[in-house]
């Protein structure tokens, strides 16, 4: 299903591109507040209007995209970086103590309501983008560990792995050289989906004030700031909401498209 992939990649690339562009150029400086020009509807100068401090909303969305993308990306990185090795290790000896231990720890993390834990983390260490990353990252670990273990268990019974064992390669080497390369497609697909979930989670956390702190803009906080003004300045609430919606939608479509493209066996009736 190429249409998903093209549409999804297009949407994601648009927001990622806008975020990247904001490092070099934004329509208006968001550091300079212009209180006299606050809450202006979209116009020729300000395409998406201005916010309650008179900042240009388009520029805010471009810069805010950096926060969302960075937080979600690093959180997925943490999840992969820790989850994949754990999953690989667990798969080496099915049912062994390591496998049991890792899977039990996974279940335990899954049992904690993620948003509550994120709130507790920020209560302990204070609200910041870094703590949002940690909070989201922790819950990505079991996802990747479980996925990796499941797929790796299947691979360990395959002939080419048996051959490598016979050739005297150790478990670590086999995991790295034979198992992992066969998981890359799967991980890319799951990574895309976790990435989109990470963006939603970041938006939720900064909406309740636990994500990136001012003056760093973020989509979730833009929504929170706009909330009381939605009835007379809907433009303030619409653009950040749509930015989140479209980015997540783009990533999900891209994930689906990638899955179909990379691994036909995973299509599962997706046509």
């Amino acid at each position: 299903m190429r249409r998903n992939l093209i549409l999804g990649t297009g949407l994601s690339a648009m927001f990622a591109g806008a975020a990247l562009l904001s490092f070099f150029w934004v329509p208006f400086d968001i550091g300079a507040l212009d209180i006299a020009n606050k809450i202006k509807p979209p116009s020729g100068a300000h395409w998406l209007g201005t916010d309650h401090f008179g900042r240009d909303i388009l520029s805010m969305i471009m810069v805010g995209g950096r926060t969302s993308i960075a937080v979600a990306l690093v959180a997925v990185g943490i999840g992969m970086g820790l989850g994949v090795p754990l999953g690989l290790a667990a798969a080496v000896q099915r049912g062994g103590w390591l496998d049991e231990g890792i899977m039990r720890a996974n279940d335990l993390i899954f049992a904690f309501p993620s948003l509550l834990i994120a709130i507790m983390i920020t209560a302990v260490f204070g609200a910041s983008a870094v703590n949002a990353i940690i909070a989201i990252g922790i819950f990505n670990i079991p996802v990747f560990a479980r996925l990796t273990r499941g797929a790796a268990l299947g691979l360990w019974t395959r002939d080419f792995v048996l051959a490598a064992r016979v050739a005297g390669k150790g478990a670590v080497r086999i995991s790295c050289e034979h198992i992992l390369p066969n998981l890359v497609n799967l991980l890319i697909v799951q990574g895309t989906i976790q990435f989109s979930l990470g963006i939603l989670a970041e938006a939720g956390l900064s909406y309740v004030g636990l994500g990136a702190q001012p003056p760093v803009p973020s989509w979730g906080r833009m929504l929170a700031d706009s909330q009381t003004m939605i009835s007379f300045a809907p433009h303030m609430a619409l653009s950040p909401g749509l930015a989140i919606l479209l980015t997540v939608l783009g990533l999900n479509l891209m994930g689906d498209g990638l899955r179909d493209l990379l691994d036909p066996r995973l299509q599962r009736g997706q046509r």
């Binding site: 989109s196 938006a203 979730g220 909401g241 989140i244 939608l249």
Partner: peptide, 10 residues
Amino acid sequence: AIPNFWFAML
């Protein structure tokens, strides 16, 4: 893809 708190606001 829709953030549910945004949907709730609307």
